[in-house]
Nucleic acid binder design. Sequence first.
DNA 1: TCATAATACCGGA
DNA 2: TCCGGTATTATGA
Length: 149
Amino acid sequence: MVIIVQTVVDTFAGPVSVLIDEGRAVKISLGQVFEDVPTALVEPFYGIVKSYFEGRTKIIDFPVKIEGTEFLNKVWQEVRKIPYGSVRTYGQVAKIVGTSPRAVGLAMRLNPLPLYIPCHRVIAKSGLGGFGPGLEWKRFLLELEGVLL
DNA sequence: TCATAATACCGGA
DNA sequence: TCCGGTATTATGA
């Protein structure tokens, strides 16, 4: 029996839902609440996310379960090293992991855990680049971290 | 500015 | 396998 619940945090930008499977975050959704999953307030996920959106927590760290290809894991691991409040371009990340900017964009789109893997800190060389949940979220998050564009 | 190619990878058929 | 589709970028007119 696998237990899956979601914990929903109301933020200034909208609802943030963390999908939790056996004590580990498996998916985070910005602006969307899952209809078919029971909701519960689960710590530490709830507290950390809430604290992050209040600007008090700068490092998001809790148990997660990520599955991806070797390539995806490599990119995600690298993106996770980008500090709070700073950004990299798709090209810069690509250079580090030895791939192409386009492939980095793909890896970002496939990222199941935004916030934990701070894909909003990866932007295009000229401009914001894209963002699955909606560009507003990317702007919200960057503004929250004090990044001005 | 605008079109176009190069590029590395994913996912469906 | 092959092929279309990317949250890109560099280049040329």
